[in-house]
């Protein structure tokens, strides 16, 4: 889900090649150590996005005159991206999907990152409110295990909410930063030296 939408987000900036998308994704997410994607995953996802009419292939030649396939966002792809940005992420998945959504918003300016934070914050508060209400109905002598688990869930969401505040404060500090573009790494073996 995250990689799929991240590819749409990166294509909202401009048409890109498959390998370039992979590198841009890893750079945006904080490097390969943080989030590594396999080329196969990128290409399978691109194929599926194309099937669904969210992206199209556009031909492009590189400097050596070789044909390389570039991908571009369709209007349907833009709509899909926009509605994804507007939806909060369920808390159990937020560390990956919300993070990618936020970083994409920061990097592409496709939506205001604050809107992404506020939507997520509202959703987390609703969840916190629900858990709190459920906990109030329980009897500590009869439902101790249930209460302890609710305490844990509540405190996790509390931590997520504090993270939201921290993100907003940090965004205020940096205002808007450009997407760190990856340095293009040469593909395959380094040219020249060949074993044997």
């Amino acid at each position: 889900m995250s990689v799929r939408n991240a590819l749409l987000g990166l294509l909202s900036q401009r048409p890109r090649h498959g390998y370039e998308l992979l590198q841009a994704f890893e750079t945006m997410a904080g490097g390969r150590e943080v989030w590594e994607v396999k080329p196969a995953q990128v290409y399978t996802t691109l194929a599926r996005l194309k099937e669904n009419g969210l992206i199209v292939e556009v031909p492009s030649g590189d400097e050596n005159g070789n044909e390389r396939q570039m991908y571009a966002l369709t209007p349907a792809g833009r709509d899909e991206l926009k509605s994804w940005f507007e939806q909060p992420v369920r808390s159990e998945r937020q560390r990956d999907e919300f993070f990618i959504k936020l970083m994409l918003a920061v990097a592409t300016g496709y939506v205001d990152p604050r809107e992404v934070i506020y939507a997520q914050r509202s959703s987390l508060y609703q969840e916190l409110h629900d858990l709190t209400e459920r906990r109030m109905t329980l009897d500590p002598r009869r439902d101790l295990a249930h209460i302890l688990l609710l305490d844990q869930a509540i405190m996790h969401i509390e931590a997520d909410l504090r993270w939201m505040d921290m993100i907003e404060a940090r965004l205020d500090e940096v205002a808007r930063q450009p997407l760190p573009e990856p340095e293009m790494r040469p593909r395959g073996r380094p040219p020249g030296k060949r074993a044997g």
Partner: peptide, 14 residues
């Protein structure tokens, strides 16, 4: 920003 918290535990879920 403002958030209205829904009293019903089932509503308002994403």
């Amino acid at each position: 920003d403002q958030t209205h918290l829904n009293g019903n535990a089932q509503e308002g879920r994403i």
